[in-house]
C-alpha cells in the first residue's frame, strides 16, 4: 500500500505526472475517487479491496482530457473499461499512464494498450457469486414471475440517471433519453417508460458492458439493473464469443456477424 503512495509521489515529484486519478478513504469503510496533484498529497492515496469503483470514466471528461501528464490507478474493472473505451475510440494510447497491480499486490505500470490487454487477459471475467446466484434465480422463474419481479423493480426507478452517469461506457454527449423528436423515452417516470429506458440501456451496452456493477451500486433505490446488461453480456459471449473490455481492436458484437450465426428462433 505504501507502494502506491511511494510510486505516485515519485511521479509527481519528478514531474512525470501532474495529476493522479486514484482512490482515497471515504466514509463507512468505502473508498472514493480522488484527484491528487501535489506530491505531498500522495499519502492520501490507497489501494485495497474497498477500491472497487470503476473510475475509467474520468479519462474522457473534457476537463481532464486536456491535462497532458496524468496517471490513473486502475482496478480490474477500470482496466477492462479502458480497453473497451479504447476500442470505441474514446481514449487514446499515450494520453495517460496506467498504474495497476499484480495478483500479489505489486504495483506495475502498464505502458501500452497491448500491455493492458495482456494484463486483462489474466483476470477473472465472470460474475461474482452473488450476481451469479441472482441471475440463476431469475432465470429459474416462470415468465410471469420474471415480469412481476421486473415490473416491481422498474416501478421504483425515478429516472435520476445515476446509473447512466456512473457507467464509463455511457459517454454519449446527447443520450437517446434526451432526444425528443421522436420522444424515444417518455419524460415522466412510470413503469412503462422505465422499462423502455432499461431495455434501451441494456441494448446499448451490448458487447460493451464489462460487468463491473457500478450502475447498480450507484442507484439510489438499489435496483439490480446491472443484471440486464449482464444478461446481454453473457449472451454476447455465449452466442457470439464476444467479451467486452478484452481487445482494443475487436469489433462490437452487434457491428459484425457471421453467416453461420445462431438462428433457430427464426421461421
Amino acid at each position: 500500500m505504501n507502494n502506491i503512495q511511494q510510486k505516485t509521489k515519485e511521479l509527481l515529484e519528478s514531474g512525470a505526472c501532474t495529476l493522479i486519478i486514484g482512490y482515497e478513504k471515504g466514509t463507512g469503510g468505502k473508498a472514493r475517487p480522488v484527484f491528487v496533484r501535489k506530491a505531498e498529497h500522495a499519502a492520501k492515496l490507497i489501494f485495497d479491496e474497498s477500491c472497487d469503483q470503476n473510475i475509467a470514466g474520468y479519462l474522457y471528461r473534457q476537463e481532464i482530457k486536456n491535462e497532458s501528464k496524468k496517471a490513473i490507478v486502475a482496478n480490474n474493472h477500470t482496466l477492462k473499461s479502458i480497453v473497451e473505451l479504447a476500442s470505441e475510440n474514446q481514449i487514446h494510447e499515450g494520453d495517460f499512464m496506467v498504474l495497476a497491480f499484480t495478483a500479489e499486490g505489486e504495483i506495475i505500470e502498464l505502458k501500452s494498450f497491448e500491455e493492458i490487454e495482456k494484463h486483462v487477459a489474466t483476470l477473472y471475467h465472470g460474475l461474482n457469486d452473488e450476481d451469479k446466484a441472482t441471475m440463476q434465480k431469475i432465470e429459474a422463474m416462470t415468465m410471469e414471475e420474471r415480469w412481476g419481479f421486473w415490473e416491481n423493480e422498474f416501478s421504483k426507478c425515478i429516472k435520476c440517471y445515476a446509473c447512466r452517469a456512473s457507467c464509463p461506457m455511457c459517454y454519449c454527449p446527447t443520450c437517446t433519453v434526451e432526444i425528443n423528436q421522436p420522444q424515444w423515452i417518455p419524460v415522466p417516470s412510470h413503469t412503462l417508460g422505465n422499462l423502455e429506458w432499461h431495455v434501451m440501456r441494456a441494448m446499448h451496452l451490448a458487447g460493451r458492458c464489462i460487468t463491473c456493477g457500478q450502475c447498480a451500486k450507484s442507484c439510489p433505490l438499489d435496483l439490480p439493473i446491472h443484471l440486464l446488461t449482464y444478461k446481454v453480456a453473457l449472451d454476447s459471449e455465449q452466442y457470439f464469443d464476444s467479451v467486452a473490455g478484452t481487445s482494443v481492436c475487436a469489433n462490437n458484437v452487434l457491428a459484425t456477424f457471421k453467416t453461420e450465426d445462431h438462428e433457430n428462433f427464426i421461421r
Partner: peptide
C-alpha cells in the same frame, strides 16, 4: 445478418424481463 444478431440479443433480454416472446415472430 446484422439484424439477426440484434434480434438474438434483444429477444433474450426481453425474455429475461418476462416479456412473452411467443408474441414476437421472426421470419
Amino acid at each position: 445478418f446484422h439484424a439477426r444478431r440484434r434480434w438474438m440479443i434483444f429477444r433474450n433480454l426481453c425474455d429475461f424481463i418476462g416479456m412473452d416472446m411467443n408474441r414476437v415472430v421472426f421470419s
